[in-house]
Design a protein around this nucleic acid. Structure first.
Lengths: 333, 333
DNA sequence: AACAGAGGATCCCGGTGCGCT
DNA sequence: AAGCGCACCGGGATCCTCTGT
């Protein structure tokens, strides 16, 4: 910067002004400085800026399961939105999510002096809240259950699972099973609760619930068990699309077919969902919107404005894995 | 830090030394300082550190298609390896990869004063090389084709495609098609070349080649076309697993089955591959190894050691989507 | 004489590296 | 040998001066 100042025949403060508040510098001088900047290929050093100004324009992102489609899309959207606002992302992906690992991550991020933190994880919010409670930077959680001390953005899981279940009920299914996610994941619990509630609301008896771990493998195991033990089930809500892939496999192995023998609804709408056989009816979550919204909240918080938690509504995408039960009748009047 | 120094009754420089080179401080003083650090919950500020020391211990990561399994896994591995070496990650994901977007990303990263850059993208290396050529920090590319100015790590694409093709030849297939990735992606080109070469090496005539864009959708389109126009084909090498999902869908729609009517080999080994119907024979790429290796190279470069480009061998994972052609004979003696 | 705008002088951010006591 | 003082990293913020009206 000193070089630029020298080349332009001004002081370094003037250069700083040109870069930060151009209108306070006369057009003439401004041009000279800008030329010098261009000529010397000068690029201002954010480290020094951060030290002097007290903020890094860096958002720390703690994320779980980054290799999956949902979190990956969300992180891309976060980065993109942040970039547009002049912020960069410091990523701290976790392989295991626990109070310890999260607080270690927050610690690393804070020592990097991030201006805010976004936590992308569906894996429980109690820990995050606890770890984030007395931080002096804004923390926004994505996909964590709402509530607690930190602001958060999420997809309305109950609405989604309700949508899925109602779709099946309206097709005429009366015995609906659920392949749930791990019980200790709030999202899994909410989906599960909403499935049960919707079934109850329609006066049906609760169907069997099996628990998976979000993986195709676990979906396969759960569905095999389901098909073998609960022959009266005509439809199943699977808590995510990966498990639905495993469920499909189980169907094939046992000689059953969707939707003829059993209807299947997934959750997420991964890009492959439309190309499975049969194309999977599922609940679409807008992962990108989640990321953008989180950044919006962060910027609000940084600006001292209130930043209320928000729920984004999911959408039912009907494809070919659901149909009326064989010999059943539609409940739709 | 001044507070800590005061609390411990030493100067702030001594505190600095306790944190950076503990052995140069007497055990006694060291204890006092460490206590003060703990009591005050002191956490050193990397921004100031960076400014004074000249390095940020930050690795910039430019990545393409982060929402997919491969890049996602790689980034996680990069971050993990970096973390272990005391480095953090600044992420700059791209939605479109071009000379402009990449150099803008490098620019942002450099102005953040990253110590090194890792570029994760299979989308051509010429641009990256050009943009990275006269950077003063080490640049390592992952998945970019080897060669050029930047060091790189990648999976041996030719070996992988060769493995896939040879597997089919050895099963007795004589008419092998290829659903390739976009021609302007070096990896797609290499896979395509290796398929052709392997076919030629075995004295077979080249099969039809169709081009997709890595998506399930494009795999679906390509496979439909293939099945309709080239009825003599008994096996197909699909350039990635997503497209294979689409290809499966086309098979189902047209009433064909794998491997009975046609054998299918994918590429990547995404987690769902084992749960498709039939379970997909594919080429496994070790994405995590890629990430770890890239960080190793970066650290070498930073230490002033040479950092030679490296290729990681892929593996053939045989599952149920490949078999001898109907009525054909195995070429295996 | 008072005032507004342009640009300069200084100190400061929170550490590190070195020479010196 | 242990510990201290000083300069310095590269910019920002505040206050101040100078010019012209």
């Amino acid at each position: 910067m000193a070089d630029v100042a020298h080349a332009a025949g001004v002081s370094h403060q003037t250069v700083s002004r040109v870069l930060n508040a151009p209108q306070t510098v006369s057009p003439d001088t401004r041009q000279r400085v800008l030329r010098a900047v261009a000529d010397l290929g000068y690029r201002r050093n954010s480290v020094a800026r951060a030290l002097a100004s007290g903020h890094t324009r860096l958002i720390g992102v703690v994320v779980d399961e980054l290799a999956f489609h949902g979190p990956g899309s969300t992180v891309v959207a976060v980065a993109e939105a942040a970039r547009q606002a002049g912020y960069a992302i410091s990523l701290d992906p976790q392989v295991t999510m626990s109070t310890d690992t999260v607080s270690a991550a927050l610690d690393r991020l804070l020592s990097r002096a991030v201006d805010a933190v976004i936590v992308v994880s569906a894996h429980g919010w109690a820990d995050i809240d606890a770890a984030a409670a007395h931080l002096d930077v804004p923390v926004v959680s994505i996909d964590g259950a709402l509530g607690g001390a930190t602001a958060s953005v999420g997809v309305d899981q109950r609405a989604g699972a309700g949508l899925a279940t109602r779709h099946l009920v309206e097709l005429g299914h009366r015995r609906i099973a659920h392949v749930a996610g791990p019980a200790d994941w709030p999202q899994a619990a909410e989906r599960r609760a909403a499935v049960a509630q919707t079934i109850a609301e329609h006066g049906l008896t609760p169907g069997p619930v099996l628990e998976g771990d979000w993986s195709a493998r676990s979906g396969h195991v759960a569905m095999r068990r389901l098909l073998q033990r609960h022959r009266d089930v005509t439809a199943v809500v699977v808590a995510n699309d990966q498990m639905a892939v495993g469920a499909y496999r189980a169907l094939t192995e046992l000689g059953r077919r969707a939707p003829d023998d059993i209807s299947v609804v997934g959750f997420d709408d991964i890009p492959e969902a439309a190309y499975l056989s049969p194309p999977l009816t599922t609940i679409r979550q807008d992962f990108s919107a989640l990321g953008r919204e989180a950044v919006r909240l962060v910027l609000s918080a940084l600006a001292g404005e209130p930043c209320p938690s928000r729920l984004i509504p999911p959408k039912l995408v009907v494809r070919a894995s659901t149909a009326r039960p064989r010999g059943g009748q539609s409940a739709t009047r």
